[in-house]
């Protein structure tokens, strides 16, 4: 599998189909794991989708005292394993993108797993499948590279190469699982 989740915030129309779809995915327990928010509704209707960047060296896993956050062989960062998670929420504070969610009732963290039952078969995750504006896409690595190249030319970060440790400084859609 060599597919990438690619986000383009400008395209978002704020319809939240991705969130409704997230609830539909297997093992999501009818709870959405992604976010759609207004940048500032008072100022404009610009919204943005946000979901896990599936870091290769995830800060969330690094700050977990129980070592509960596992990464699959494909590179998907899973929700904290329920048997280990002690419910401290370090992951939600460590994540540079503000992604993990926490359920106080059931005392567990849950987060985007790229619809693991779909993406492991190379089928697009639900959010990317339904997104009517293509703000969320599930695309080939090569296509991502060309979009990214074009984007870099228009962006401020041209010429700089993000690394695992400081990529939060850069635009997040440079990242996704299954790169390389």
């Amino acid at each position: 599998m060599n597919k990438i989740m690619y986000l383009e915030f400008e395209r978002c129309i704020g319809c939240r189909a991705c969130q409704a779809a997230c609830r539909e995915c297997g093992d999501h327990d009818a709870k959405e794991r992604n976010y759609v928010e207004h940048v500032d509704f008072m100022e404009s209707r610009q919204t943005f989708p946000m979901m896990c960047m599936q870091c290769k060296d995830p800060a969330c896993a690094r700050v977990c005292p129980a070592n509960a956050i596992q990464i699959t062989e494909e590179g998907v960062v899973l929700s904290a394993s329920e048997e280990k998670c002690i419910g401290c929420r370090n992951c939600t504070f460590g994540c540079p993108f503000g992604i993990p969610k926490f359920d106080f009732e059931q005392n567990k963290m849950y987060k985007c797993d790229m619809c693991y039952d779909r993406s492991k078969h190379d089928i697009a995750p639900m959010c990317a499948s339904v997104c009517p504006s293509d703000a969320i896409r599930f695309i080939d690595f090569d296509e991502m590279q060309s979009l990214r190249r074009r984007r870099t030319q228009m962006n401020l970060v041209e010429g700089k190469k993000p690394t695992e440790q400081d990529k939060w400084k850069y635009v997040p859609e440079f990242f996704g699982v299954y790169s390389d």
Partner: peptide
Amino acid sequence: LGKLCPKGVT
């Protein structure tokens, strides 16, 4: 092309 809005999904 498979796209749906939140009404369609639900």
